[in-house]
Structure formats: structure tokens, C-alpha cells
Write a protein that binds this DNA or RNA. Structure first.
Lengths: 345, 345
DNA sequence: GTGAAAGCGCTAACAA
DNA sequence: TTGTTAGCGCTTTCAC
């Protein structure tokens, strides 16, 4: 009662074994739930753990067992629902299976992402979740070299396991909706950096739909900005003050759309009378805005859940769908309407 | 080139040492940046690491060094800016110092929180960030037993290190503002569970301010609901349909206030003519709502930064302020105004 | 069902 | 400066 434990607060499995009068192997068996331990000994071990306030040392366990029981995730940022929501769902799922989440941010930067993945690998993660399908060239190389189950989210990509939706098609649906309303001059506000695959895919989708209607997106009408309302507001002003003021503005997400709407209102433009605006994601507030937002509903939580399910199944050697394509749903609300007769302003 | 490494993708420090023609100790020194290695050898080691695609095994390092270079954080949920924003700031800070974040959710439940903290301790975290000051009775016991530097956030508490603000006072400021506008009947919508310290402190603050004005909060006018707009909307309806319809409603955060506003609008109540509504946090959208929201601005990012700074300093044996009290700022906007002459409805 | 003992891959004295 | 060596605390054969 007064030797090792008292010294450092570091009670080891050996201390438990001593107190319980069994070998360390037996303690380990109890801890891991092996059925092959006699009831009486099991109880003795449990009592000893309790009495000593024993906390297992996972580093030692990981080293010995070569499994860390942790799963890594690298997201661009936590500061937006877009990623924090699926992550929350992901976390909850893996948790139920006894795994811990190791989280890292890439800040939308492939180099940072690679660095973070490397660090996660150092920590011995058993599986990994990534966002998007455009990474540093050496990212997948490393993952495959280490044979770590991994899944991409948001964008899918035939080469690797993934869960997401077709950004190109989703943007097409939105654009077509606007086209059907008679709009001819479009503006697009996307989040920075425009290099990320989701943004570029959506742009492609919009451009294709436009081209199919014999239209095109003016160079000056594509603006990228940081993911904040105020930035979007500024972007909208640039659009309105530019050479081709649009009657329809497609925004990268609902937050950006919200900012764009504010700018339109400040210019006394009626929504949707003078200008139509669309968002993406269908955040909770989208339907509650002054001008309820037309947007694409994406099942953010499902993305996290499916990613977790895939990884967990793979870890257990069970089969799982390599690719899951979610279908975003067009939600038409009051922020879009027929194009005005004459060009605005 | 074809023995161990090829077998498993698991290159060890020993493999590197072999290839570089040095001892494992030297490799370790290079990896840890000890200055005591001759340039030529250092380079040889670096080349070998590169060539073999060596990834350090942190479990082994942690076991041997007794430091995991990771910091834990337990937040109620990631699904709201209130916690994801400070967490993002926290993460970034500790990262710059080479630490990794181990994240866990408590779902506002003390038991879950304790379980998560235990798990983090198992992972050997070097420090810990907590939210709030009301925890499971055995939580701090464990932390102190393991001698892990720890800081509480949001609420402060003289017993332990902390960074936050005085919730009681903040609620008092808001209530006083409303009182000054002539309001006499108040409603309060708080997030679930009402047992958490931030909620109860604020309630106390409101009640005290009310009492000082000779008023009190009707039992039926205190409603708690989940942190969603729709729940807040329902809560608002209950308030309006209750025995004491309020002319001023204090909401737990901006999201709840947004939902409450919607409900008021649906009942054709003018804001602030018929009813005043306040939020908390000053989320980015607060000023952009149809009725710009009167709220308390809280420096969410600062909370995370200060928490990280404290922990990092402590880890380095440097002095750091145990307690930091941030001062939320009352932001008066259009959602609050003079109380109507007659009671509404 | 249980224990002895050999590592897991690294760090940190301690020598040299 | 560098190498040798003894662990860190656990899991996991392999005997019994």
C-alpha cells in the first residue's frame, strides 16, 4: 500500500497482478475480456484495479498489440458545420466500437494535410478519414504503404473508397433550376481556395449546364472569397458593380448565400424579384432566413456515419461498399424566382 | 532493400540505424533534434529515413519517454460554433508547439465526460482542456492523481485553472438592458440540459437582476430545449401561449434566439415593438438577421487560445495566469426595444 | 485456465 | 560525440 503506486500515481498492470495474486497475463486477459479466466480470479483482478485506481497505458498496449484502437480524421477546418457535423457523427460511430478519434486540420492545404496524415500514422491510427479527393501526390502512397484502411468523403473517386455526392451533378441541378426560371446572367461565389475538388467540380457542373443552354459564365462573375458572411457580402457587391450584373447568383454554401442576400438587400434589390440566390447544404437556418433559401440539401451526418461504417467494417474484415454516392436534394424556396424582364439596375 | 521493410511496411528505427551505419541512439538523437550529432551522421540518418520511408512509432516513443506529446480536450459537442470555434483555435495553438489534439465529446453528460477523460488519460495525454466547472465528482480526483495539467473553459472557478467569463454577470447585463427598456414580464429559453453550470449561472444572473427590480421569473416562463432552431421555435410558442406571455425573451444563444424570432414572426408579433429578444455569443449571422440581434459578444477564439497558452506554459514549467476572466460585451441591435404599453395579445 | 518469458520500437542513462 | 544497454508497460505465444 506504500511502495510503487504511492510514488508516482502510475499504477501498472504488474501492480494489479501482485495485489490480485495472479500473473500479468491473467490481468491482461481480464482487461481484454478473454473468456478464459476463472470467475474468482476475474473478480480479484477487477477489485485490484478498482482499489489501485488502475489506468491502462495505451501506448504500451499499442506497442505490444500493434493496434492503437484509434482512428484518424483530417478535415479542412472545424470552423464550419460542413465539416463539424459529419465529424460529430463519425466520432460517435467509431466511439461505439471502442475507437478514439484523432483529429487534425488541413486548412485546405495539401501540404499540411500530408503532414498531418504522417503524424497520425506515427500515432499508429488503425484507419483514416479524409475530405475530398485531391491530395498531395504522396498521401495515398503513404497510406497504402502502411496498409491503413482509408476513406475519402464529400467527393468520390473511383480509385479509392469514398462517400459523398456528385458535386458536378448537384451544381448542374441548381443551375438548371435557375435556367428554367429564365435567368441568363449568372454569378458564382465560391469559397477559398477554389482549387479544392468540390469547388471545381461544382463550377464544372454549372458551366456545363450553362453551355447546354447556350450561355456562359463571364470571367468577372466568378468570385472566390473566404467562408464568412462579410466576405460573401463584399463578393456580391463586386458582382453587382461589375460589367455583367447577374440576375442569379450561385453560392458555395448557405452561409455565403446569406451574406450575398444581405448585400442585395442593402442595394435595395428585391429577392427574388430582382435577383435570385442559391446556397448549398441546407443548414438549419436556411429555411428561416428572411428570404428562405433555395439550396441543395446534403445529408452531412450521413457522410460521417457511412465513412465510419465503412472503416469499422473493413477493420473487422467485413465487406463494405467501397463507394457510396449520396443524392443531394434540390430544395426550392423563396430566394429564387423568375428572372426579371429587364436586366437589373 | 528486400528484407524487413518489404515484409510489412513497418520500418523501424533499427532499420534506419543499420542503413545509416550508426546506432539506434544516434538515430533517436537526430529524430529528436539533439544538437550533439555530427553533421555527416545526421545527414546519413536523414537520408536513410527518407529512403526507407521511415515513420516513427509514437507508441514506442511515448512508452519510453513517458510523454505523449498530445493534449486532450473534452467538449459537450462539436455540433455548435460555441465549442467548435474555440476548439479550432486551441488546436492550432497546441499544434504550433508540436502537440496533437485528442478530442472527445461528453454530450453534456458528466458520466460520459468522466469516461472520456479516463480514456484520454489511458492515451497518456500530457495536458487536458475541459468545458465548464461542473463535472463528475471523481474527475478532478483522477486528473490530480495523474498530475496532468488541466484547464477549465467557459466557466471559471477559483479552485482550478480556468478561462471564461462570468455567466452570472453577463446575464445580469442583458437583463438590466431589458429592464431599462421597461420590460416587466420575462421569458427565458435555455439549452438542454439546464443543469450545466453556464446555464444555471446565467439563470441566477437574470433572476438576481429581476429581483433587484422587484420582479421575478414565472415558473412557466423558463423553458429548456435542445440546441436547434426548431426546438427554440416551439419553446417560444409555449411561452406565448402560456399564462404569462413575456414581452422580453432571453435566449441561451443566438441560434435559439433566431428560432424564437421566427416563432414571434409567425404569430405576427413585431420585433421589437411587441416583443424583445436577446441572444448570446454574437455569432457571425447575428447582425445580419432580419431583426439584427441584441446579444452578448463572447470572444470564442480567445477562450481556446488562452486555454492552449496556459497548458503549454505549464507544460514548459513557465508561469501562467491560473484564471482569466474575459469580458463579454453587450451588443445592442434591433431585436430589443421599449416594452409595449399594454401586455401583448 | 494459467504463468513464464520474449518481445513491441523507442529513449535515456551511462560508458567510452 | 557516439554506442551499449536496460527498460517503458503491455500482449502474446508457448508450456503446463
Amino acid at each position: 500500500m506504500s511502495d510503487k503506486p504511492a510514488l508516482s500515481g502510475r499504477v501498472s498492470l504488474e501492480d494489479v497482478a501482485l495485489l490480485a495474486g495472479v500473473s500479468t497475463a491473467t490481468v491482461s486477459r481480464v482487461l481484454n475480456g478473454s473468456a478464459t479466466v476463472r470467475q474468482s480470479r476475474r473478480e480479484a483482478v477487477e477489485r485490484a484495479c478498482e482499489e489501485l485506481g488502475y489506468v491502462i497505458n495505451r501506448a504500451a498496449r499499442t506497442l505490444a498489440s500493434r493496434r492503437s484502437m484509434s482512428i484518424g480524421a483530417v478535415v479542412p477546418t472545424l470552423a464550419t458545420e460542413t465539416f463539424s457535423r459529419p465529424l460529430a457523427a463519425f466520432q460517435q460511430k467509431i466511439h461505439q466500437s471502442g475507437y478514439t478519434l484523432l483529429l487534425a486540420n488541413s486548412d485546405f492545404d495539401p501540404d499540411t494535410e500530408l503532414k498531418e496524415v504522417n503524424k497520425l500514422v506515427e500515432y499508429g491510427i488503425d484507419a483514416l478519414m479524409l475530405v475530398g479527393n485531391s491530395h498531395h501526390p504522396r498521401l495515398w502512397e503513404r497510406i497504402e504503404q502502411q496498409a491503413i484502411p482509408c476513406i475519402q468523403t464529400f467527393s468520390v473517386d473511383e480509385r479509392y473508397p469514398g462517400v459523398g455526392y456528385d458535386n458536378e451533378q448537384a451544381a448542374g441541378v441548381l443551375t438548371t433550376h435557375l435556367l428554367a426560371l429564365g435567368h441568363k446572367t449568372f454569378g458564382v461565389i465560391v469559397g477559398t481556395p477554389p482549387s479544392n475538388d468540390r469547388v471545381s467540380d461544382r463550377l464544372t457542373g454549372t458551366r456545363q449546364a450553362l453551355a447546354a443552354a447556350g450561355l456562359n459564365l463571364h470571367e468577372a462573375n466568378l468570385i472566390n472569397c473566404a467562408f464568412t458572411m462579410n466576405q460573401a457580402r463584399q463578393a456580391m457587391f463586386r458582382l453587382l458593380d461589375g460589367p455583367h450584373p447577374p440576375t442569379a447568383v450561385i453560392c458555395g454554401n448557405d452561409l455565403l448565400a446569406f451574406g450575398a442576400m444581405r448585400a442585395a438587400s442593402e442595394r435595395y434589390l428585391r429577392i427574388p424579384g430582382d435577383i435570385s440566390i442559391t446556397g448549398f447544404n441546407d443548414y438549419e437556418y436556411a429555411e428561416h432566413l428572411e428570404h428562405p433559401l433555395t439550396t441543395m440539401r446534403v445529408e452531412l451526418d450521413r457522410i460521417g456515419e457511412i465513412a465510419a461504417d465503412y472503416l469499422l467494417a473493413t477493420l473487422n474484415g467485413e465487406p463494405a461498399a467501397r463507394q457510396t454516392l449520396l443524392q443531394p436534394e434540390l430544395i426550392v424556396r423563396g430566394s429564387t424566382g423568375s428572372a426579371p424582364r429587364a436586366a437589373i439596375r
